Structures are given as structure tokens and as C-alpha cells.
Amino acid sequence: MAKPLPHQAPDVLAPAELGPLTLRNRIIKAATFEGCTPDALVTDELIEYHRRPAAGGVGMTTVAYCAVAPEGRTERGQIWMRPEAIPGLRRLTDAVHAEGAAVSAQMGHAGPVADAKSTGLPALAPGRLFNPLSMRMTRPATPHDIDRVTRAHAEAARIAVESGFDAVEIHFGHNYLASSFLSPKINRRKDDYGGSLDHRARVAWGIARAVRDEVGDRIAITAKLNMKDGVRGGFGIEESIQVARRLQDDGSVDALQLTAGSSLLNPMYLFRGDAPVKEFAAQFPQPQRLGIRLAGKQVLRAYPYREAYLLEFAQRFRAALDLPLILLGGITHRETMDLAMAEGFQFVAMARALLREPDLIARITAAPDTASQCTHCNLCMPTIYTGTHCPLVP
């Protein structure tokens, strides 16, 4: 059973420990693909993207997305962790540290979400699947592939340490590779990586263990774990809690960031709010553009937005686990942050609100009743192809 909640909730703006790391506050800039690394290497634009929220008061910002292998990118412009990337990554971490914040590298393998047309490499998955954006079929991952990708996570974590990162976030969500293996809807394998939860979770558990064995306590390790996929027959809360408990008991991670949804099958389940179908379609050539316009509302299903919309799911994890948890989803105001602390969560993660106002945390610190200007229109989402930003900012 989980420990009882403390009598007094911690101050979200006070320093806090995350594994071996001390953050200046409990607010994390969540990973959002920046769309500004055309050569899969750090650019001045990427550095500025993360320097701004660091200067604006967050405890830690998260670089996304650092693929562990070239075929693990969702598209060819994403950083993949290799020696050539270290000098640029070091410039980035130095810039964030100069503003007083910590910095994490979100790393993982996109699996069936990878755009094989863009990367020029086959996308891996538990079995053969069709990716409508790349118009390509995935290749079933062999045990050799799984071993290679597992080792690549450990190597990527070592590169993160060399590059000056304070933490890594392992991506076990959104039906990326490890998450797709967890999903009984996607994973129909009959071997040791399919069937029972213990088999389907082998990829995630093995990756987490390999990363911990590689870096020890030199940096903090978190994992972004789907609570549920948001699709019928997909990965759900009860199984996710079992996966989380194993990660906790194994000592592989210092905290979990709880997420939901499938980038492959139901992406708006995570984001909530408006679904910008027309704007997404405009980013693609024909025939994908027409297909997105016609079928976009079935894929990009809109869900109503409300503050802390993942809290109800996350409370079940809080009741079952002792491990520090990071609450994500619709956190834009100080009162929501205080609610998360009162519910026993150790950290909160924010994304869209900080795209609109990178200095939001500094403003909340100065005036707790500060209202976020983010309207949750989600027009920022299609900008990932041209440099992620809030299009409502002049």
C-alpha cells in the first residue's frame, strides 16, 4: 500500500529532490517536439526554445525528442543520440543551466509512429501495421532488434550524461515502440514478447533496467508511461499500474510522468481541446492532405478540455504506488498545481501554456492568481513541422 499523504502539501515553488537531483521548484516543462533540428542536431533555435522557459522559472525543461536510433525518429529532423550530437547538446545544457534550471532528455524509439518515408528506414513494431502518415507498413521487430534498441537506450543515456543533462525521460507512452508492445491491441505476437502482460512489458522493463545499469545515480531517471491508450482493446489502467509497480520495485526509475493516448490511433486523447484538422492537413502533400481532411475528425477526435483532465486516472496510480509521480495534463494555473500537491503528486508538468508564455512560472511566482493566456486551441500542434510555437503570439 502507498504511504499516507503528508499532513501539509509541499509548496510547488519550493526546491525538491528528484532522485540525485535537486530542482529549484516542482514544475517541469514537458517534452514537446520542437521541430527546429533539420539536420538532427542542435540548433540555436532549439537552444533558445529551452532557454526561454528556463529563464521563465521552470525547475526543469525537457528536450524532445532524442531518439536512440535513426529509425526511431518520427521524422528525419529529430535528434538521435550519437557522438556528433554531443557538442550541440552541451551548448544547450550549458544555456539552460545558466538560467538556473535543470534539463532532461526525453529519449526513446518511436516504433510504429516513426515516419519511414521521412527517415528512409523501416519502422519497427510488434507486428505489421500500416502508418497512414508515412503510407508505409512497419517491420516486425525481431529479438535481435529488441536487444539492439535496449542497448541503444543505455548508450543514449550515457551520451546524455556526457552532454551535461541532469535527467533522462524514457518514453513508454503514446504507442511508441515500448508502448506498442504493451498494447494488447497492437501486440499480437505469440513469442516471449506477446500474450501475457509479463511478456508484453519485457521491452519496457528491460530498457529501464539497462538505462539504470548504465548511468546509476549520476543523473535522475524518469519514465513517461501511458495510463491508458484511449482506444478499445488497448493498454489500460489496471495493467499500467502493474507495469509501474515493477518499475518502482526494481528501482529503475526515480519518478513516473503519467500520460495517455496513442499518437498512432488516438492522439487527441492526450491533448484535449480543439482538433485542428484543417491546419494539420495543410502540412502534408497530396494525397495525405485530402485523406486528413476527409478522415481527420475520426483520427483527431476532439475531447473537452478542463484543468487537470488526467487527474482522475492518475489518482489511482497515486493510491497504488510509493514512487514519486509527475502529474501531466491541463495544468495552467497555480491553484491546479496546489491541487496536485494536495493529492500527493510530487511534480507537475506543463507544455502548451509555456509555449504561449515561457515566463508564466515567474509571473505566477510574483502573483499567484496569474491567469494563463493559453486557450487550448491546439493550433500549436501543426506547427511541429515548421518550428513548434504558439501561433497566437505576435
Rank of each mutant, 00 (worst) to 15 (best):
V42L: 04
V42G: 02
V42R: 02
V42D: 00
V42C: 06
T43H: 05
T43L: 10
D44V: 09
E45P: 01
E45N: 08
L46Q: 04
L46T: 05
Y49H: 15
Y49Q: 11
H50E: 08
R52W: 02
P53I: 04
A54F: 03
A55P: 10
G56D: 05
G57L: 07
V58F: 05
G59N: 03
M60S: 06
T61N: 02
V63P: 00
A64M: 07
C66A: 09
A67S: 14
A67N: 03
A67L: 04
V68E: 02
V68N: 02
V68R: 02
A69L: 10
E71N: 08
G72V: 13
R73D: 14
T74S: 10
R76T: 07
Q78S: 12
I79C: 14
I79A: 13
I79E: 12
M81Y: 05
R82T: 12
R82E: 14
E84I: 02
E84R: 15
I86D: 01
G88M: 04
L89N: 11
L89S: 10
R91P: 04
R91G: 07
A95V: 14
V96I: 12
V96N: 13
H97S: 11
A98E: 10
E99A: 14
A102S: 15
V103Q: 06
S104M: 08
A110P: 01
A110K: 01
P112W: 08
P112Y: 04
V113I: 14
V113S: 00
V113T: 12
V113D: 00
D115C: 11
K117H: 12
K117A: 15
S118F: 07
T119P: 00
T119E: 09
G120K: 02
G120C: 09
P122R: 00
